[in-house]
Structure formats: structure tokens, C-alpha cells
């Protein structure tokens, strides 16, 4: 087995992930998407980030 086979397997995995995501997720609407650049958009940043403090435990 060569590295190219590993890369193709990884890319296949990404393809399967995106296909399953498309089947399961809410449909996309590019007309309701945020503007291209956050800076100057007037909208608060809301994306998930690994450093974001978690909600307090119940």
C-alpha cells in the first residue's frame, strides 16, 4: 500500500461525511447566509470554537 491509497481513503471519507451531512442537515440557503466578511458586517460572531467556555454544569 502506498501513501496515495491512504490519501484517497481519507478523501473518500470526507466525501461520505459530506454526503451524509447533506442528507441529514437542514437545507442550505445562501441568500440567508452571513456576509462574506465578519469585520464591518454589524453581526455578532456566533460560530462554535474549541476555546469557547462551556455552559455551566446542571
Amino acid at each position: 500500500m502506498r501513501r496515495v491509497h491512504i490519501t484517497l481513503l481519507v478523501l473518500l471519507g470526507v466525501g461520505v461525511l459530506l454526503a451524509l451531512d447533506r442528507a441529514q442537515s437542514q437545507p442550505l440557503n445562501p441568500y440567508k447566509a452571513p456576509p462574506m466578511i465578519a469585520l464591518g458586517s454589524g453581526l455578532a460572531a456566533t460560530g462554535g470554537h474549541c476555546a469557547a467556555p462551556p455552559p455551566p454544569a446542571r
Binding site: 461525511l17 451531512d21 442537515s25 437542514q26 460560530g47 462551556p54 455552559p55
Partner: peptide, 21 residues
């Protein structure tokens, strides 16, 4: 607690193509 928080639960329902990371 984490995955049921509103922002994370909404992202689980949304497309991966809307998630920055």
C-alpha cells in the same frame, strides 16, 4: 450540557458547510 446548549444543538442540525472549524 454542551451538545444540548442552543448554539451547539443548532449547529448539529445545520450543514457542516456553515461551520467555520
Amino acid at each position: 450540557v454542551f451538545w444540548s446548549a442552543s448554539s451547539n444543538a443548532a449547529q448539529v442540525q445545520a450543514s457542516l458547510l456553515t461551520d467555520v472549524t
